[in-house]
Amino acid sequence: MEILIALLIGVLFSVATYLLLTKSLLRIVLGTVLLSHGAHLLILTMGGLGQGAAPLLGQEAGSYTDPLPQALILTAIVISFGMTALLLVLTYRTYKAHQTDDLDQLRGRLDE
């Protein structure tokens, strides 16, 4: 199971990196979204997958899944929501101000 998810994480990271390296701002935002999905899955996988019940002690199961990665990811999800929103607004404000979303045209130059 872990091997399969590790491969999926690899795919998510690859696509996210590719999107981040493009010159279009919207693709970059989408890239960060995929990157955070990949990172969340990575953290979860590192804790081990599918061993035991959900970490709710009321269930009184014999073993539980690791709650710590879940807590970390929960924080990460909410943070990445804030980041995505900020980047999104940044993107469209940049687009409106400069009439382009091409990073090649937005680049700052040393002489300026």
């Binding site: 959900a54 709710l56 002690l57 009321g58 909410v78």
Partner: peptide, 8 residues
């Protein structure tokens, strides 16, 4: 605190 849920 005891079941799925919480502030977020």
């Amino acid at each position: 605190h005891n079941n799925p849920g919480g502030g977020f």
